[in-house]
């Protein structure tokens, strides 16, 4: 799953989505499906944003490509957050939902405008969440192999991954 900056989404959802799927493909991932999951108010400000759009994608990738790909997403400021998890299978209905979005005439509702936040508050939120974020990042690589996620299993040869 990817949390995208609404400014990018507002300009053009399809392009915002392609930005992510292109980065995935560039790192050798095979994208199985991708769709707009939701547009929401964030539980806490992230980089001064109070709202954002979530993209949910399922893809296959070999473990060796993962670190390079993480780096790409870390560096891209249009991606506010991302989460990648191993999954056994794509949940039922997921492919259909993604296909609907690709159909002709499908209109993505434009994200509402940002709620008014004072600059101080935005800065505060950004600073406030940084240590935690870094903490999570440091823990993230260790978490997957160690097996808290183990139930999510390996898929033969390439793991199907959901990034959130």
């Amino acid at each position: 799953m990817f949390l995208l900056d609404n400014q990018v989404v507002r300009a053009d959802w399809r392009q915002a989505k392609a930005m992510v799927t292109d980065l995935l493909a560039k790192n050798g991932a095979k994208v199985l499906c991708a769709r707009r999951w939701d547009e929401r108010k964030l539980a806490y400000p992230i980089r001064g944003r109070t709202r954002g759009t979530y993209l949910l994608a399922y893809f296959e990738i070999t473990g060796t490509s993962l670190n390079g790909m993480r780096r790409d997403f870390e560096l891209d400021e249009r991606v506010l957050r991302y989460l990648m998890l191993k999954v056994d299978a794509i949940p039922a209905g997921e492919m259909e939902k993604a296909a609907e979005e690709g159909a002709d005439g499908y209109v993505v509702p434009p994200p509402p405008t940002e709620e008014a936040t004072s600059p101080e508050r935005a800065v505060f939120g950004d600073l406030a969440d940084r240590p935690i974020q870094e903490n999570l990042r440091r823990n993230a690589p260790a978490e997957a192999p160690e097996g808290g996620d183990g139930a999510e299993a390996e898929v033969p040869e390439a793991a199907a991954a959901e990034e959130s």
Binding site: M1, L3, R40, L42, A43, Y44, I46, G52, Y54, L80, R81, L83, L85, D129, I132, Q133, L136, G148, D149, S164
Partner: peptide, 19 residues
Amino acid sequence: QRELKAAIKRARHMGLMAF
């Protein structure tokens, strides 16, 4: 409980839930 904790931590990381 471990699953619950992991899920909540992920939701927090993604800005879906508050810390």
